[in-house]
Design a protein around this nucleic acid. Structure first.
Length: 244
DNA sequence: AAGCAGGCCAACCGCTGCGCT
DNA sequence: TAGCGCAGCGGTTGGCCTGCT
């Protein structure tokens, strides 16, 4: 039996529907005090009239401090495409390769942009969406630049293209070799290349040959590719086998 | 200006796997 | 080993927003 309480719905004692700012605050306070997990205790300990599932979902998809806001970048999009081709609808697995992005976010993005029209990213709708996305990104970029200008924030160029890379040869050294030659410059954690940063941090000890799991191996296999268009790392599956 | 269609995203639902008893 | 509870996952829904006609 459901009861409408104006903003939200009460069902069997649990509130449903959109979260209020006060509920968010209570949930954040709870996680600060008790950490993530034991979500069924939230109602009792935090005074929230939400079930554990709802609390977990709200935290994971919206309140987590490490979430990355804003549109999916073309770089992230290419990663999503490649990983979806590998793993299918394993959204949580794909999300683990995109720091700050949630499985829900990626799932929504995929369904919006690629699910329809026979999974053709280049369809008319996808093109329109991309055009809209680019307009938004340009706007966001302008805003970021304005903010950086206001704060005098000088961001360093984050080149990770190896100086020894021979374009004619098209043969890339291994990651370990680059580490030895100190030819990799770590991007900052705040950079959109957070993926590269986390991969370097996670596997720097030995590169793909030291990867801890099959999934790590897959990531190494797929992700370490370089593109010199903008003096930064880009995701290009076609070159993967040359690099690792 | 209004109506409509589609995009976008937050949230819910049902199922599954895992750990504990 | 069966039963139970919890956490996590993928699918789906519903409402708001935006752009087009």
């Amino acid at each position: 039996m459901a009861e409408n309480i104006g903003w939200g719905l009460m069902e069997e004692g649990w509130r449903k529907g959109p979260w209020t700012a006060e509920e968010d605050r209570l949930l954040v306070e709870y996680v600060k005090l008790h950490g993530e997990g034991r979500w069924n205790n939230v109602a009792r300990l935090a005074g929230l009239k939400r079930n554990g599932k709802s609390c977990r979902l709200r935290w994971v998809n919206y309140l987590r401090p490490d979430l990355k806001r804003g549109q999916i970048t073309p770089h992230e999009e290419s990663i999503i495409l490649e990983l979806h081709a590998r793993w299918g609808n394993r959204w949580s697995t794909i999300a683990r390769s995109l720091p700050g992005r949630t499985d829900n976010e990626i799932k929504n993005y995929w369904r919006t942009h690629f699910k329809k029209k026979g999974n053709k990213p280049s369809s008319h709708n996808a093109e329109k969406s991309r055009a809209r996305l680019l307009r938004r990104q340009q706007f966001q970029l302008q805003q970021q630049q304005q903010q950086q200008h206001q704060h005098g924030d000088q961001t360093d160029t984050k080149t990770i293209l190896p100086s020894s890379f021979d374009e004619n040869d098209n043969k890339l050294p291994t990651f370990t070799q680059l580490m030895m030659r100190q030819e990799i410059v770590f991007p900052s954690a705040a950079d959109e290349q957070g993926l590269l940063y986390s991969m370097i941090k996670g596997c720097a000890a030995g590169g793909p040959e030291q990867a801890a799991s099959n999934e790590d191996m897959l990531m190494w296999d797929g992700l370490w590719n370089l593109d010199d268009l903008q003096n930064r790392a880009y995701y290009q599956p076609a070159l993967a086998s040359n690099f690792c």
